[in-house]
């Protein structure tokens, strides 16, 4: 288990500043949520931490090592990302075997077949799925494959970008249960972006509320049900979610 810390992370696209000095710490083995409206910069934080976008300033450290100083291979062994839309994040013409074996080849793992079978087993899919293509899988099965692809290189940190918002509630329940189980078994540290505070309350220990590229407040998950936020925007967001849930 490794902790992650973000210090003064800032990003500008030309004249437009999209992230303003983002700082927070994620404890080892913790599930940390990022919430806020669309456009508030939640996903951008993940893209920067994963170096999918590298034009930023500040520091992102995993267990004291800056992600900017890691080699790409080392970085991918340390952190992996799961994206929102399982329909868009798997190559449509690659069989699941290709999807899972590529990271193993790149990282020079041995026993590839055994590892692929293990990874599929970990996410609750049968081994014969290795020879299927994404279009032969349902949305929930695809998201399981995306999670298997992330955990097959034995990372320490998983960055989850709205991992269930494209899925039905019944499938969401399966994926959330799976993520909770994997965290218990393998001790991952999660950062989870979500717009659904019920999911955050269910999964996360603490979470940061973001607005227009800033972290407004970092709260414990207990603060949701009691609306224990002090910043006006965080209160408004939590109140809206509570009201939606209550009347809905």
């Amino acid at each position: 288990m490794k902790p992650l810390s973000i210090r003064d992370l800032s990003v500008s696209f030309g004249a437009l500043r999209v992230l303003h000095d983002i700082s927070f710490d994620v404890r080892a083995g913790e599930c940390f949520g990022l919430v806020g409206e669309s456009g508030s910069g939640k996903s951008t934080v993940l893209s920067c931490a994963a170096m999918l976008w590298s034009q930023w300033t500040g520091r992102v450290e995993i267990d004291g090592v800056s992600v900017q100083d890691m080699s790409p291979a080392e970085r991918c062994r340390t952190l992996q990302m799961v994206f929102q839309d399982p329909y868009g994040s798997l190559h449509p013409r690659h069989a699941i075997r290709t999807v899972l074996s590529e990271p193993l080849k790149i990282q020079g793992f041995d026993n590839r077949d055994a590892r692929m079978e293990q990874a599929l087993g970990d996410v609750g899919l049968p081994v014969d799925f290795l020879d299927r293509y994404p279009h032969q899988l349902s949305g929930g099965q695809r998201q399981r494959v995306a999670i298997a692809r992330a955990l097959i290189v034995e990372p320490d940190v998983l960055l989850l970008d709205e991992p269930t918002s494209a899925l039905d509630v019944s499938v969401q329940a399966e994926i959330l249960n799976l993520l909770a189980k994997l965290r218990d078994e393998k001790g991952f540290t999660y950062i989870m972006v979500s717009h659904d505070l019920a999911v955050v309350d269910h999964m996360c220990d603490r979470f940061a509320v973001m607005q227009t590229g800033r972290v407004v407040e970092v709260l414990d998950h207990d603060a949701i049900s009691s609306n224990g936020a002090t910043e006006p925007y965080a209160r408004e967001l939590i109140a809206a979610s509570l009201e939606y849930e209550r009347i809905a």
């Binding site: 509630v169 019944s170 969401q172 329940a173 249960n177 909770a180 269910h202 049900s225």
Partner: peptide, 20 residues
Amino acid sequence: RGLLAAQPRIAGGRGILPVL
């Protein structure tokens, strides 16, 4: 009933969600 139960709720406890 399965759809209703699978929905996580605020302060709904953090147990395993019932799967349909």
